[in-house]
Write a protein that binds this DNA or RNA. Structure first.
Lengths: 247, 247
DNA sequence: TGACCGCAAATGTGATCACAAAATGGCCAG
DNA sequence: CTGGCCATTTTGTGATCACATTTGCGGTCA
């Protein structure tokens, strides 16, 4: 991904690119990106006007974007209308991984026939970058690349049924990604990636599917361990709206 | 479901109940209902102001509701912003059923332990109504009851992961439901329901799961046949906005 | 007769406003 | 110092407005 987000240190990004696109889509993309790479903490509250100011638009496109994310359950609208990132308990996290383990191998299987040599090489390149990111301890980069790796495969399925379903799951899980990062280290998780790449190169659908399944199941174990310690993930206080400093 | 929609003959319903709830939610529910029971044709266009007038609200809550549905891909926003019900080709319909066959049996399996005697009796009652609806040839009632049957089970899974995913799939598939209705007749499709009920009564998770799987697969075959004749389902003209008669 | 062009109506988008409900923070009583 | 109460501020909701774009129709010309 060459058009990386502006990524100001504190997360504020006022000039989100592509002026030709609707403000709503830009806001949506900005929020999705933040959620996917876990830049927003579970339970974190946000406000229409706050986001609008932060992104340099009026509250209107934000409202629409929020509704979209809320429909995917990537955001939670309290009965009083307050917006926040959902807190998932251990059971729901398990269910997300369960659903992922059902959908993603199938998507990979559908994708396999459409993965050409270029795509396989791209996967290898991403995976190399992943290794580098792990060595450097660059969490965000790792999370972003891991997402890229998986969706570079799934996108090849050309399925606008499986792809959105899987995206929704990643979106909901994103805020908890950082929780497991500490567990990753240089364990065998990348080996599944290597195995997936090998299968992709040879167009072996079932083998690719199986590699993906194992990758997810390994993630499930890591999560389970992480949750054993820190139960009720992010179950702290209300974790309200992060106030913005006056300009 | 006792609070059935007003259901004026031509589909217009101005006073959608529950004044205590936000207009947005009422609009969303009205549209979801219409989509689920296939009251809106694939390819049908709609307008913000049109829906607003039809539902007796300002365009504002409609805008938000539309964004939510669009995020679920239950509605399609053309690049120029036009709103319409997506047209799904044969392949996408197959993928939806494929995804359903992966998710719904699992949801049923999760639900099984929580299905008590009351629930099982409710299922039997719904299935009886389904039989009656089929005999009467009441399409809408059949579609609504079939939806109720499945979700009476899935809801017991208490999974706000699987449930929304499955709902999205039904929502996208809803507009094509009528297409297959003609094929249903009094074939063995209900037998899977009966089998599911028997499993539900005894709390047999795997058996319930299998019955659901078979039910979906039988639906898949019916769809496949229906599509063999009428390919590119609803591939006619632009099928624009249905104009409302002046009041 | 048919294609092309141009105008008028309609549509989505974004912004702003008013309002009721809710949350926040400070104040006072115990 | 603590707990509850009240006023202020904040927040989402719904409505309305202005505008650029697009759509659709009707007329014109070949």
């Amino acid at each position: 991904m060459d058009t990386t987000a502006p990524a100001e240190p504190d997360g504020t990004a006022s000039s989100l690119g592509r002026s030709g696109e609707s403000a709503r889509n830009r806001v949506t993309r900005a929020l999705r990106e933040k959620l996917i790479i876990g830049r927003i903490q579970p339970g974190r509250g946000m406000t229409l006007r706050g986001l609008a100011a932060e992104l340099g638009v009026s509250p209107m496109p934000v409202r629409e974007a929020i509704q979209g994310l809320a429909a995917e359950r990537a955001l939670d609208l309290s009965p009083s209308g307050r917006i926040c990132v959902p807190r998932l308990d251990q059971r729901r996290i398990g269910e997300i991984l369960d659903a992922r383990a059902l959908l993603e191998p199938r998507a990979a299987e559908l994708a396999a026939p459409h993965i050409d040599r270029d795509c396989a090489r791209q996967l290898a390149r991403i995976d190399d970058d992943i290794d580098r990111s792990l060595l450097d301890g660059d969490v965000e980069r790792y999370l972003r690349l891991n997402h890229d790796f998986h969706f570079t495969i799934y996108r090849r399925s050309q399925s606008d049924v499986f792809l959105p379903l899987i995206e929704t799951l990643w979106l909901r899980f994103g805020p908890f990604m950082r929780m497991i990062y500490g567990r990753v280290g240089t364990t065998g998780l990348v080996d599944h990636h290597k195995r997936a790449i090998a299968a992709a190169e040879r167009g072996q659908a079932r083998e690719l599917s199986e590699a993906i399944r194992l990758d997810i199941h390994e993630g499930m174990q890591l999560i389970a361990e992480a949750l054993k310690d820190q139960d009720a993930a992010g179950a702290g206080g209300p974790l309200p709206v992060r106030r913005r400093r006056a300009v």
